[in-house]
Design a protein around this nucleic acid. Structure first.
Lengths: 150, 150
DNA sequence: CCAAATTAGTTGTTACAACAACTATATTCC
DNA sequence: GGAATATAGTTGTTGTAACAACTAATTTGG
């Protein structure tokens, strides 16, 4: 049995830690006109141009409505454009603009240095362990959630 | 240097994992009229009766406005009551109601079983390692954020 | 002792996230 | 081929979170 109480609950700790990391990173990139969530989506767009929103949503770990709204704000700021897909008139393909690419190129090294700064209290093995445990938890919970819907 | 790309970024993984854990837990407690965030605050109120909002905010890992609004919703649902402090007329002391205590007593074991279910992919040592790494990251980022404000 | 600074709490605004309901197009399968 | 079903995306609503601006009360320091 695990230790009890909120202070030892993974959920509570995960939330508190995530919020702090995010705030720290947000402060570092806000002058470029992006939030961490918008950055995650822009990163995916730059990674592969021409994806449709559904695919972007999956890769960015967001649901469809959230992705719609984040893409709207990225488009309003001129970082991406949407074009109606020729194959499927329900969907849009998303492309990064020159401004979007420049901005992403600027932010990427900031992300890495921010991670390095935050992870300075962890050894390289600990960082590795942390991300691998997170991936495992993530995958397991995803399958629990999918199982739920039956 | 750490592995690059969003899929290996602690921030991204932390956020995605936190959201999934939270959704899973939220589904388990929603019939009791509480969200995970409201549960975290109610837990703290039950832990120590008569705290003022500022103290609750710290213990629940939330800021003041968020705490105000969560307490409002807990009060509207009859889980807590607020009384003006006698010592300091700016502040309110928060008390759990009978209904609040019953509900908290019901939810606590659900929290533990949910954690157990989610953490089934981790060994006891891995769970321990995970929470201790999270606490360390959390503390370090907190100090970075405080340092920021100068 | 009183003006200045601090503190407790609230309110307004913006952004994410989850869910549900909806439109429009595509696919399935009888 | 056409009705039933599924899929892509949008919109509305609720809850959480961060920040800033605010009120009211308290503390500090000349």
């Amino acid at each position: 049995m695990h230790q009890k109480g909120l202070d030892h609950s993974i959920g509570f700790l995960l939330g508190a830690t995530y919020r702090k990391l995010t705030n720290f990173f947000a402060a570092r990139i806000k002058d470029f006109g992006l939030t961490p969530e918008q950055w995650a989506v822009l990163f995916r767009v730059r990674e592969e141009d021409g994806l449709i929103q559904k695919e972007l949503a999956e890769r960015a770990g967001k649901d469809k409505p959230t992705t719609t709204r984040i893409l709207d704000s990225l488009e309003a700021k001129g970082f991406i454009t949407k074009r109606a897909s020729e194959h499927d008139r329900r969907s849009f393909q998303v492309y990064i603009t020159d401004l979007g690419r420049e901005t992403a190129d600027t932010i990427e090294p900031i992300e890495y240095s921010t991670i390095a700064e935050i992870a300075r209290v962890l050894s390289a093995e600990e960082y590795e362990q942390m991300t691998s445990l997170l991936k495992r938890l993530n995958a397991h919970t995803t399958s629990l959630l999918e199982h739920e819907k039956e």
